[in-house]
């Protein structure tokens, strides 16, 4: 009786998850494997003939297998490594900014003050914008010729001539980091806020009795309780940082020079500007490997460690 029930539960469960897993298998697993295959072939988009998998009327070209040549070619290109270091800087800076700013905003919004409800409801607005719009909006602020910020600074007499924010690769890259942070930090704030509100008031009361000031309470009560959320925010920001493409598209197109070219932009350009799908998918697959690594870290740090509590 008992075993039959357990069996049927498993079967029912699979019925429930089957449509989703099937769909994900079709739209994620299959393209993922096919892209992996492409990264080992000499893809010629113009050639319709050659080896292929045929499923009825559907004919999926397989192209010529060339082993790891795409990878060796891609990895031999100094641009790849430059882009990689740049990506790591971008991700690091973005994660730091998004976490710190997100946390600071959460601290402020966790206090009671007039206007808090309004601020809280507006909090998510930057996050809900398409990054295309985010980019446009910041062009309007930072532009050398007509940007509002330059206009204000000039008018206030704080600068003699307009600041060219996208002039140096270094400053352009940091502008990208900050703009992306503006877009993403609200989500971190949201998570932190939810975490802060789940901390019992008793803990604070106890700390206060012990004579702990605001900063000590923050350090000894708030932060430890938020540890899982800090990890979550870090990991989400890391992955988002690796993937960012659209802001680069509207703001810098990878320039000046290659100074804002990240791995994802490098892979995107190779695949869809020069139509070299072989090397392109190879580049994107190294990015995927990085993301997989992050997943393992995520799993180790967040799930494995905190699931027992939840």
């Amino acid at each position: 009786m008992k075993t039959r029930r357990a069996l049927s539960e498993s079967a029912v469960a699979w019925l429930f998850v089957a449509p989703a897993l099937l769909a994900i298998g079709l739209v994620v697993a299959f393209p993922l494997v096919y892209s992996l295959w492409l990264s080992f072939t000499d893809v010629n988009l113009l050639r319709a003939t050659g080896p292929a998998v045929e499923l009825g009327a559907l004919r999926i070209p397989l192209f010529r297998w060339i082993g790891t040549r795409n990878y060796t070619q891609v990895l031999a290109d100094p641009l790849y490594w430059d882009s990689l270091w740049r990506t790591l800087y971008f991700v690091g800076a973005f994660v730091a900014e998004a976490t710190v700013v997100g946390f600071a905003m959460a601290l402020v919004l966790n206090e009671r003050f007039p206007g808090r409800p309004l601020l809280r409801s507006l909090l998510l607005v930057p996050w809900s914008l398409s990054r295309i719009v985010v980019g446009l909006l910041w062009v309007g602020i930072l532009d050398f010729e007509f940007g509002a910020l330059n206009g204000l600074l000039l008018r206030a007499g704080l600068v003699d001539s307009a600041i060219a924010f996208f002039k140096e690769g270094w400053s352009a890259l940091n502008v990208l980091v900050s703009v992306y942070m503006w877009n993403q930090a609200p989500f971190a704030t949201l998570l932190f806020l939810a975490g802060m509100q789940s901390i019992s008031d008793d803990l604070y009361a106890a700390a206060e009795v012990d004579g702990a000031g605001y900063w000590r309470r923050l350090w000894y009560v708030t932060l430890p309780a938020l540890r899982p959320i800090v990890f979550l925010v870090l990991v989400l920001a890391t992955v988002n940082g690796f993937l960012m493409l659209d802001l680069i598209y509207v703001l810098t197109m990878g320039g000046p020079g290659y100074d804002t070219t990240t791995i994802s932009w490098h892979g995107f350009k190779t695949s869809f500007t020069f139509f070299k799908f072989g090397p392109g998918t190879a580049i994107l697959y190294t990015l995927t490997a990085l993301c997989l690594l992050m997943t393992v870290v995520y799993h180790r740090l967040v799930l494995a460690r905190f699931e027992p509590e939840g």
């Binding site: 299959f30 096919y34 892209s35 892979g267 994107l284 990015l287 995927t288 993301c291 997943t295």
Partner: peptide, 13 residues
């Protein structure tokens, strides 16, 4: 955690 862009060449073909 997957970069969607890696799937796009496959979708394209």
């Amino acid at each position: 955690m997957l970069p969607t862009i890696v799937l796009v060449p496959a979708f394209f073909l």
